[in-house]
Design a protein around this nucleic acid. Structure first.
Length: 752
DNA sequence: TCATACCGGGG
DNA sequence: GTGTACGGTATGA
């Protein structure tokens, strides 16, 4: 038995040093194909392995099997082997049967990409341009391909079958380890597969075999009639990577993306060219007919942006594949708990010759969530946000909270190691030159480690899904979390701050007028010193003012004047443009202490509505049509609904379910549709909207966001009808925003 | 009004 | 032989 240090390393990285594995493929027959990059060249090796499963008992099993009994109290204690996977039982409650290539990786201790850098992997990008989104009806007319060295080529052919053959030929000639695109698994591959099938063209995109295989995947596409069965495609010998998965993971950590589409993401990350060609999706084929060069520029930009997004964000999955015993493409879309941590634990227990627990449904214990407090509502000045980074994993490490059935403490060992090695990776990244491959590699490793560390708590709470899940341990983590948050709040309050809102791992508070930045830092540091050593409280942000409305619904004013609105009360895609502008302008006045100014904004908005000074677009809202025309007509007599009435009144009698339109209410009580795409429509703007209705909307749905910020009488005066202006005008100048303490507001949020 | 189910993307 | 989260929106009772 090896020493604890080595053992812990093996749990995290495996043990077999074979370098350069870029793809693994195994069937049930005990033959495994391994493709490796050796000094840049591709080597294809095959090896034998004996398929195996873990079983609770040997009852009913044939004498042809070989078996081995594992130690410890776990239920899954017999390793059963056979010449072919077919002869072994499939996965069920009392049997663990991994996919064939994972059996090989777990047993051998090999992983992908040892000794490789992210840039060493040969990655090709492909992007289909089609006449529409439905492969049953639409067709492919162009494919952009980018080879691993950056050369871009357009494949075009009016004969779609020829076009698909040309694509397959290019893939085989370039022979990449990885094929990438944005939404590859959600669009390109299913579309390509369907078209190839309809046209009878073999889709031999892999390194062996003649067509694509499928694997079950929650976030795959529905194939055939059974919509509950979702799959992703597999090309043996290559890894099919969807940059959308990398983007989702990235945004999960940073939460700074407005959307996950390729164009927006590339722009956000600074990867888009200044003259990037844009064409609206439904016009691409039309434009191709008139101006094919433009579509080529567009498709070229797509594959180049995919390559750039992948280079920047794809390193994290690459790093995960150096740790966990699964195919790279599965680690790229796996959930971190079931998809990364569980395989690591399985490998660790088998390495220790230790039996695994059977999956259990849990004992019915409820999972309790984090704490959420609203202490005060209204307007506060000099606001500080302090929070604990990675609170839950820190608590798990501090109090040694792990799954009861994890006798060897593998999960905590993994978390300890990952936290330490992540700090090392972060430090190494800082030392490497900006933009260098080394820095990228260290940052990617750090991102991958963070992903796993932060999901360790989720692993505990995922009752039934993860092998070692333990709701009691998860509850102990959240209990410690609530305790920590309460301690933070109590100690901050004792140092003279005004608590505003606290949620899970962070707290907003206001400091006295006389305080300097150093005073703010000092109290945070003092309170941080009272927390357990591994729990690090930090000053996360400073704001000039905060309008606290409801839990998780607030507005913040930065010291740079930037206004941030959070929560449904302040931002909604359905809100009318005039109302959005009203909210921002009025909140700005409020933060300036200018209550008369708030009324001014209100009065100006009311007047603009009543005098029809605003274009109809400003009062319109974006809605989704969820009923088909026939559906709506069936219920129209009993219940009239504005969006559909607006469509009918605008002469639109047909529409597609799911279509989004801008509508507004007209004075005659029906509605009208605004053509969003047609800027000219502004010119013949009838401005026939129902002004009184929109004044009511303004007062009831938007002015109400100020109810906590003003004393009740003041609130009534500020948002009173314009006719009453003279009554209240003299007192407006004396009014001040208020902050009110809220009592009994503590909740433990329910999550599951 | 409130709870819950579903979506995010691609042409 | 699969399973994130999160915040928003659309839906049903």
């Amino acid at each position: 038995m090896s020493d604890p240090q080595t053992r812990g390393d093996e749990w995290l990285w495996g043990w077999d040093p074979t370098p350069g594995i870029v793809s693994v493929w195994a069937e049930g027959d005990g033959i495994v194909h391994v493709w490796r990059r050796v000094d840049g060249a591709l080597v294809h090796e095959t090896a034998r392995f004996r398929p195996w499963v873990l079983a609770r008992s040997l009852a009913g099993l044939d004498a042809r099997f070989t078996t081995r009994e594992l130690a410890g109290p776990g239920e899954l204690r017999f390793v059963v082997r056979a010449d072919h996977l077919r002869a072994l039982p499939a996965s069920r409650d009392d049997v663990l049967a991994l996919p064939a290539e994972e059996q090989y990786l777990v047993a051998s201790g090999r992983t992908y990409f040892r000794g490789m850098r992210w840039g060493d992997v040969r990655r090709m990008q492909i992007d289909l341009e089609t006449t529409g989104l439905d492969p049953q009806r639409d067709r492919i007319f162009l494919v952009a391909v980018r080879d691993p060295d950056g050369a871009v080529e357009m494949l075009e052919d009016a004969d779609e079958a020829q076009l698909i053959r040309a694509l397959v030929e290019r893939v085989r000639a370039i022979d990449p380890d990885v094929i990438e695109n944005h939404n590859l698994h959600g669009f390109d591959l299913p579309f390509l597969d369907r078209r190839a099938q309809l046209l009878g063209v073999p889709l031999a995109l892999g390194r062996i075999g003649h067509g694509l295989r499928q694997r079950a995947a929650r976030r795959g596409v529905a194939i055939g009639a059974d919509a509950t069965r979702r799959v992703r495609f597999v090309a043996p010998g290559r890894e099919l990577i969807d940059t959308l998965d990398a983007v989702l993971r990235y945004d999960f950590a940073t939460r700074d993306l407005a959307g996950h589409g390729l164009k927006g993401v590339a722009k956000h990350l600074g990867l888009a060219g200044a003259d990037r060609e844009h064409i609206r999706g439904d016009q691409i084929h039309d434009v191709y007919g008139r101006d094919p060069e433009r579509v080529r520029r567009y498709a070229r930009a797509d594959v180049e942006e995919v390559a750039a997004v992948s280079r920047m964000l794809g390193g994290a999955a690459f790093a995960l594949a150096q740790m966990a015993p699964r195919r790279y493409e599965r680690l790229a879309d796996a959930g971190p708990a079931t998809g990364v941590i569980d395989p690591l634990l399985v490998r660790a227990y088998l390495r220790a010759n230790e039996a695994l627990p059977a999956s259990t449904a849990g004992d019915g214990t409820q999972h309790t969530g984090a704490a959420l407090h609203l202490f005060a509502a209204g307007v506060a000045r000099r606001v500080v946000k302090a929070d604990v980074a990675s609170l839950y994993p820190s608590l798990m490490r501090e109090y040694r909270i792990g799954p009861t059935r994890d006798r060897h403490g593998v999960l905590l060992s993994l978390v300890d190691r990952l936290v330490d090695q992540r700090l090392a990776a972060k430090a190494a990244a800082k030392l490497a030159p900006a933009g260098s491959a080394e820095r990228h590699a260290h940052e990617a490793m750090s991102a991958a480690m963070k992903l796993v560390v932060n999901s360790a708590y989720g692993y505990l709470g995922a009752g039934g899904l993860t092998r070692f899940s333990d709701v009691h341990a998860a509850n102990e983590v959240t209990r410690r979390g609530r305790e920590t948050l309460e301690l933070m709040c109590r100690e901050l309050a004792a140092r003279g701050v005004t608590l505003l809102e606290a949620d899970t791992d962070g707290v907003y508070f206001a400091v006295p007028e006389s305080w300097t930045v150093d005073d703010e830092r000092r109290v945070v540091a003092e309170v941080a010193a009272l927390l357990p050593p591994r729990v690090h409280l930090e000053l996360e942000g400073r704001y000039a003012a905060m309008l606290s409305h409801e839990p998780k619904n607030y507005a913040l004013l930065g010291y740079d004047g930037a206004l941030t609105l959070r929560g449904v009360a302040f931002r909604s895609s359905r809100s009318e443009p005039f109302a959005d502008r009203f909210l921002r302008a009025a909140i700005e006045r409020l933060f300036a202490g200018d209550v008369a100014g708030v009324r001014g904004v209100f009065l100006a908005t009311v007047a603009a509505l009543r005098h029809h000074e605003l274009p109809a677009r400003d009062v319109s809202s974006r809605v989704r049509l969820s009923k088909a025309p026939s559906e709506y007509l069936a219920t129209r007599e009993s219940r009239r609904e504005l969006p559909y009435e607006a469509m009918l009144a605008s002469g639109r009698t047909t529409w597609a379910v799911g279509e989004r339109v801008r509508v507004y209410r007209t004075a005659r009580g029906t509605g009208r549709v605004i053509d969003e795409l047609d800027d000219e429509a502004l010119d013949d703007d009838a401005r026939d909207y129902d002004a009184d209705h929109y004044v009511r909307v303004l007062r009831d749905q938007y002015a109400s966001r100020f109810s906590r910020a003003l004393a009740p009488d003041d609130f009534a005066a500020v948002f009173a009808d314009p006719d009453q202006l003279s009554l209240f005008a003299p007192s407006l100048a004396a009014m001040r925003p208020v902050l009110t303490r809220v009592f009994e507001s503590t909740t433990a949020t329910d999550d599951d």
